[in-house]
């Protein structure tokens, strides 16, 4: 499943807020065409790593390479070219509240591509349909959409420019188990059809089992383990044991056997 070349390669990344070191020499690879699940306790710095990679947070030390290019010291144009090749799904969706669902999806295309109005509309509707939304949401504002719909529209917006990498920050949080399972499936399907590499910050054990090719675990500012789910389940590490075999985790392996 996973190709050879890493699309994201983080080496010795250090991020500090004031005196608090959130990420302490973190190294992590995301390979082409894989879905990487990134887990860790609340407040462990998962979102911080994601925000550092996409350039929303400054780093103190270390290198971040995306598509083999070091992001530090890039010219604005080169950086923008890379930014067009990734899409980000924020935890709350971060849809623009003054734009309709359709306009939200069209927004990146309008900014970066010179498309005819007809093509702009067709492609945006196609993206909405690909994330499982009908034409009835097109004219709705984010305030009129349910939580699950907001996530779907936000995913469609993240996919607007046909990116190579998608960052998902807790995509299934706030969804009911059925909705979450559907969303997992959607991510899997889109990842296959569009050949995406996915970096997914999550807490959802079901997601980890269902769609992730590899899992990386962040604890105390370091990546303490990375590998497929079987490795995680077999690990003797205390934190991993309580995470994957805790009261909530125990249900899943059993279900998987049936």
């Amino acid at each position: 499943m996973a190709g050879n070349a890493p699309v994201i390669s983080v080496r010795d990344l250090v991020v500090r807020f004031g005196d608090a070191t959130v990420l302490d020499h973190v190294s992590l690879d995301v390979f082409e065409g894989e879905i990487l699940g990134f887990v860790g306790g609340s407040g462990a710095g998962k979102s911080v790593l994601m925000r550092a990679v996409i350039g929303l947070l400054p780093r103190r030390q270390g290198t971040i390479e995306v598509f083999g290019t070091d992001l530090a010291g890039l010219s604005d144009d080169a950086r923008r070219a890379i930014e067009q090749r990734w899409g980000v799904l924020f935890q709350q969706g971060a849809l623009f509240s003054s734009l309709t669902a359709l306009q939200n999806v069209q927004f990146p295309m309008r900014e970066y591509l010179r498309l005819s109005p007809r093509l702009l509309e067709e492609i945006a509707l196609a993206k909405l349909e690909m994330v499982g939304l009908g034409a009835e949401v097109r004219g709705k504002f984010p305030a009129e959409l349910s939580g699950g719909m907001i996530k779907r529209v936000a995913l469609a917006r993240a996919l607007a420019l046909d990116p190579d990498i998608v960052f998902l920050d807790e995509p299934t949080s706030g969804l009911d188990p059925i909705g979450a399972a559907e969303f997992d499936q959607l991510i899997r399907t889109l990842q296959r059809t569009l050949g995406l590499s996915v970096f997914m910050v999550t807490h959802d054990l079901d997601s980890l089992h269902a769609v992730c090719d590899r899992i990386a675990v962040l604890s105390e500012g370091k990546v303490i383990a990375a590998g497929p789910i079987e490795t995680m389940l077999a690990s003797e590490h205390l934190w991993l044991k309580s995470y994957f075999h805790g009261n909530r985790g125990r249900q899943i392996p059993r279900r998987a056997h049936h």
């Binding site: 509309e121 067709e122 509707l125 196609a126 349909e129 690909m130 034409a135 059809t193």
Partner: peptide
């Protein structure tokens, strides 16, 4: 093979005329 799934996906969209 790689593009088949994508074409299949797009065969299904925009079927209802706006």
């Amino acid at each position: 093979e790689a593009d088949r799934a994508l074409m299949e996906e797009l065969r299904l969209v925009n079927q209802t005329p706006a």
